[in-house]
Design a protein around this nucleic acid. Structure first.
Length: 402
DNA sequence: TCTGGGGTCCTAGGACCC
DNA sequence: TCTGGGGTCCTAGGACCC
């Protein structure tokens, strides 16, 4: 193929239906059948769907119950995140064998800037072709790659190439490629923004490019307006950069049934705080702001946070703050979701901080929680399962594993 | 149909300082 | 006595992404 990709050195690689594809490596007999990856629970949502399932309108993030209505014959497989991390690492190291300039966006996506690799490996088109072949040979997975002059055009291009495709958008063809696309496909335009843009007669990225900046600012705010205006005109100066330090670490849980007992909610906050503390220590980080999030049965959601004088990585300290924030809420509606997050992160040792070693009393308690989790699984100390005797669970939602 | 869990970024208002 | 503007930090809420 004769494509001039010399002006399209930014690549965006996206693994196709990643979680579902990994599961299907072990279940090749199911590849042509609709398959959905989701936790087997009343309130779970689809985390991945293969292409046969998508034909029925099944997409990730829709409720599993809805997915099974759309496609009653769908086979539901449980997720295995450790496996996904393994395959992700393998694919990322293929990318890094071409250039160190790899920016991981998520477990299944990455940007690369191959400007510095063309002398050794050939044009961006040739590099992308090699990567796709290598990924397939080494993992059995397919991926799609977009190549363009900027990150967000490369990302749009990989989306258009799916599944198992490659699309090059030379710099000179950027606007021609961009302008017919619907506004909703633009990065940063979600359901809410899309609706208000459509309401103003702005349907395509081309429409957006012609909309005065002031109008956009009114719709999506100062920063958002400027961003949208630039993107619609093909401008995106963000460079591909390697990993940066995390900004927050948190955990949250949606209960299978709404919870009103504050003792159960406090215990869940404690469990999550311990996990957050452990992750902070593993990353060598401390955090100064402790935040909780509570979602009620009517789906309204509130957040409360407090910034400490001294950063911490100790589960007990996090739990003390989280529980205090929770207690200050007073009487509550039944709770659907609760979560803990630590923000304002810094490297441990970079300033005044309460470190793990200084809080020995708590070690025993953290170890006890670890042991329970290890022996009985995380679910066994999740409030929902404690509240729901097996008899109440009703007929299993699990599909026959054909 | 009834909405996960991991995050990032932006806005707006108030406190406080100069 | 009243009034200012800029800057920074903190908190709450919400849109968005994968």
């Amino acid at each position: 193929m004769d494509v001039d990709s010399s002006t399209a050195p930014i690549l965006h690689m996206d693994l196709d239906a990643f979680f579902a594809s990994v599961e299907l490596l072990d279940r090749p007999e199911l590849v042509d059948r609709p398959v959905v990856v989701a936790h087997d629970s009343a309130r779970s949502v689809v985390t991945a769907a293969n292409y046969p399932a998508r034909k029925f309108g099944v997409r990730s993030a829709i409720p599993l119950s809805r997915a099974l209505q759309l496609c009653p014959s769908a086979i539901v497989l449980q997720p295995h995140f450790e496996k996904y991390r393994h395959y992700s690492r393998e694919v990322m190291s293929i990318l890094e064998s071409v250039t160190p300039l790899v920016e991981r966006m998520s477990i299944d996506e990455a940007f690369m800037d191959v400007s510095g690799a063309v002398r050794q490996f050939g044009s961006p088109f040739e590099i992308a072709t090699q990567i796709r072949a290598e990924v397939s040979a080494q993992t059995g997975l397919t991926c799609s790659i977009g190549a363009a002059a900027t990150k967000f055009v490369a990302k749009l291009a990989s989306g258009r190439a799916k599944p198992d495709g490659l699309l090059v958008v030379p710099a000179a063809e950027t606007l021609e490629f961009l302008h017919p696309l619907p506004v909703g496909s633009l990065w940063g335009v979600g359901a809410v923004t899309e609706k208000s843009l459509l309401g103003r007669g702005i349907h395509t990225i081309g429409d957006l490019a012609q909309t005065p900046l002031q109008v956009l600012r009114r719709v999506v705010g100062d920063a958002g307006g400027r961003k949208l205006h630039e993107l619609a005109n093909g401008i995106d100066p963000r460079p591909v950069t390697r990993e940066t330090i995390e900004k927050s670490i948190g955990h949250e849980v949606t209960f299978e049934v709404d919870i009103s007992d504050p003792a159960i909610l406090r215990r869940e906050l404690l469990r999550q705080s311990v996990k957050v503390g452990r992750r902070l220590r593993e990353s060598g980080l401390v955090g100064r702001t402790i935040a909780i999030k509570v979602r009620f049965d009517d789906f309204t959601t509130i957040a409360r946070s407090r910034t400490l004088d001294e950063a911490t990585q100790v589960g007990r300290r996090i739990a003390d703050e989280a529980v205090a924030l929770f207690e200050a809420l007073g009487r509550l509606k039944p709770v659907r979701l609760i979560g803990v997050r630590v923000e304002n992160l810094a490297e441990a040792g970079s300033g005044s901080a309460l470190l793990w070693d200084e809080d020995e009393d708590w070690r025993g308690a953290e170890r006890a929680i670890d042991e329970v989790e290890e022996r009985f699984g995380v679910d066994s100390i999740k409030p929902a399962s404690l509240l729901r005797p097996a008899a109440e669970l009703g007929p299993s939602k699990r599909r026959p594993q054909a």
